[in-house]
Design a protein around this nucleic acid. Sequence first.
DNA 1: TTAAACTTTTAT
DNA 2: TAAAAGTTTAAC
Length: 826
Amino acid sequence: MSVETKFVDVIVPLAVPKALTYRVPQIFIDLVSIGQRVVVPLGKTKLITGIIQNIHHIAPTGYIAKYVEALLDEFPQVHHQQLSFWKWMANYYHCHPGEVLNAALPAGLKLNSETKFILRSEVLDQLPELTERESDIVDLLRLHGQMTHDELAKALQLKGAHPLLKALLSKGVIIGEEEIIERYKPKTIDLVKLGPAADSDKKLTEVLATLEKRNAIKQVDLLLHYLQLNGHDTTAKQEVHKAKLLETAQCTSAVLHAMIDKEIFFLEKKEIGRLNKYLLPQAGRPQLSDFQTQAVEEIKNHWQSKPIVLFHGVTSSGKTEVYSQLIRETLDCGKQVLFLLPEIALTTQIIERMRRYFGKEVGVYHSGHSDHERVEVWQKVLMDQPGECDLIVGARSAVFLPFQRLGLVIVDEEHETSYKQQDPAPRYQGRDTAIYLASIFDAKVLLGSATPSIESYRHAQTGKYGLVEVTQRFGGLQLPAVEIIDLRPESKSKTLQSHFSSYLVERMDHNLSMGKQIILFQNRRGYSPIWECHHCNWIPQCTRCDVSLTFHKQSNVLKCHYCGYTAMPMSACGACGSNDLRMLGFGTEKIEDDVKQLFPSAHAARMDLETTRNKSAYQKIIADFEAGLTQILIGTQMITKGLDFDNVGLVAVLNADKLLSYPDFRSMERAFQLMMQVAGRAGRKKEQGHVIIQTYAPQHWLLDLVAKGTYQSLYEREINERKNYGYPPYVRLIKITFKHKEESQVIKTAQAAAQLLQPLLHDRLLGPITPYIARINNFHLQQLFIKLDRTSHGMQMKSKIIEDLHLLMLDRAHKSVRMVVDVDPM
DNA sequence: TTAAACTTTTAT
DNA sequence: TAAAAGTTTAAC
């Protein structure tokens, strides 16, 4: 045994600026290693789980290190590659290591301590003076032994019992005990086995005879069914599941338990994985077309010299098959593959395809799965048995999985803004972090998109990334014909039927009569249904945020999308008292109503946040549309992601205008991407699809580009703008947001910050700006935008600026103003 | 994040 | 003047 003193630096899942140092007790000295989870005391009362980041012999100065309380793992839960990835992320996105830890570990691996209160036996005979409530607690604890705060509060029907517990603690009647709760439990099933009363043929015969004599029909029946299931053998190794047995014997568990009491049976728990239920019948991967084979070859060629390749393929060019081929080849080399998708694309078809192609090799990791399932995928990757979970299909959080031999990272739909985490910290970009992750492993990266982000395409243009472009749709399919429809004439002559031009109605009619399906797209942004007073134009506002409340028909409430505040729809105007309130704007609900009026015989379904709150509802809408049960699908952004339908003849964007007027330097890029994605849903098999875009601004240059489908022109236009006005990819953008309850205070602080940075940045500083939504949850907001070089000098500047700002915030003049740093905001 | 320590407001 | 409510700070 060693006699040295060891210290460990532990990352705790809190917003503390660095790892905390603890002393390792002798018993753990030879057991600790980097990446293990430990329980450590924090503050005066808490125990908390953290991860060992570092082991050393240097006693800290200035304080006395506390001892590690417990060592949870025999083996590390993360490898050094993950730790260095975390470190990079905390540094690049300017957040605390604990915040990265929080994002990285599935909740099941993070242990929470919860105080359990118990009575002190020493004082039970001579309790001090207690109030009525206090003695209620003592009674409850006598009954239950130990209880948490929440359990006590619930039992007493109180909102909080803290003052009472505090009093009892100080009177010495109770003590609090910290207990670490492990939340992940492996799933088990009960197996039924023969007990000592029936474990031989002879005993079995006797038992049967006895039961028959007693006329225990049910029990005899159960025993016979059991024997049938396990193959008529007392020693049979065939497993009999309790649920299965009860079901086949049509019998209740009471009968079984009676027999367990007689020792005829006993139960045994067996651990089973949760992932097997996803196994699908295997299917061979389809033969690649010439174009696809060529793309695979080109990609691999680029990889000889450049680790990152951008794969620009029009919608329906068969990207998935190209991915599959490259995945297969990487897996065959004994490497792992990470396949990232935007979250909303993950509930659907592409996963099923991957499961059919790769079976047990696939692990799916995203928020749609229960946390238990996520822990199982994590453990599978950690244990690293070749052939199991070597291919991870997941959302951005999958970058944190404990890979060790990553060979390929694919980021599909790489332009998607949903790769960026908005809140809470770390505000990381899934695509960008995946690229860094790949560099740790020397892995190849493939970015795929039909409409690449300007940033990625620029890298491809400058030669930093390899570029492979496929302009052919799979099977020689034609690109859809796009038509721009001017809404103004019909609007002027008041012949517009709700939001449907007569041309659109006519084409919808035509498609329906041909047995074709239709997709109607309505951008959510700016088209939420709101109430407005017809007299004075008053609109109900959120009391905590500077936004209008939106009307939700299904639940009949007015709701704030920012803070969740809800109010009942009012019958009178809040300003003038008029009763003439009308619905303004049109959400998908309104469109659904209109469609039912215009096409009463067609089946329409609506897909948006409201109707797809649970997974099965979402899948039913998709399945019904695929099966042709619905002819018209109305939806927001989510219908554009990762869905392929065979029979869609017409896709319509009901109003493109809000897309074109959004005040953001990326608005044109996004509008183009969105409309191209929507358009890509049209046309399959042999026929050309048809896309109608309705607008009040038909002359807009972007619509012209969408109609022509020319990404190149968009890129050239945009890249020039970015260069002229100094936006990404030419600079690295940092957004600083200040928040405070008092508007005057937040303005004062933002101005002080701007003044501080002005001499350093000059025209590379924008703001203070009052954001479009100036108040959220009663916090007033002010923003600064900082533009830095995309060089190491820029990175140094970034650190210095943020350091300076943190110093400024320590000043009494800015106390209680909160500052949020967002690197590469989207 | 959490809870103790500290400060300010409110009710008696 | 004490209790309640709100705010700040440190955590190894």
